[in-house]
């Protein structure tokens, strides 16, 4: 009897370890800047913020020497509403929801990308 319970106990333990690891691995696989419905904000080449396009919000991304970009998420899209850069070309790029052309702010070295269909279409890139 003892052996049976030991066997069941170890099996349950191993199953839990496996399930936990698989969930961890799947979540790692998703956090790669490719999921649809999300925007990925990079500053100086580093991913600084991931936001869902379903939740409306306004936030600031600040850089060195007072540089900033005010970013808004609305109606499933994302855009820059205000920025410290002299030309404000990032704001003129409007709102994006599916890509493929990212919003870029050269002076503040900021890139905003969206999921780009890479998850649903299994896309590796878009030429434009």
């Amino acid at each position: 009897m003892k052996e049976k319970w030991a066997l069941i106990g170890v099996s349950i333990f191993l199953c839990l370890v496996f399930a936990g690891s698989l969930l961890f691995l799947i979540s790692m696989g998703r956090d790669k800047g490719t999921e649809d419905g999300y925007a990925y904000i990079y500053q100086d080449g580093i991913l600084v913020k991931t936001v869902s396009l379903e939740k409306e919000e306004v936030f600031l991304i600040e850089g060195n020497h007072g540089a900033y970009n005010k970013i808004q998420v609305k109606d499933g899209s994302i855009g820059v509403t205000e920025a410290s850069c002299p030309d404000f070309l990032c704001g003129q790029m409007g709102y994006i929801s599916k890509g493929p052309i990212p919003i870029t702010c050269l002076p503040n070295r900021l890139v905003i990308e969206v999921g780009n269909g890479r998850e649903t279409e299994d896309l590796d890139g878009v030429v434009y």
Binding site: G33, Y42, P102, T104, V111
Partner: peptide, 10 residues
């Protein structure tokens, strides 16, 4: 993965 601004483009 990395996104950046290089050579004047994304």
């Amino acid at each position: 993965e990395r996104a950046d601004i290089l050579m004047g483009t994304s």
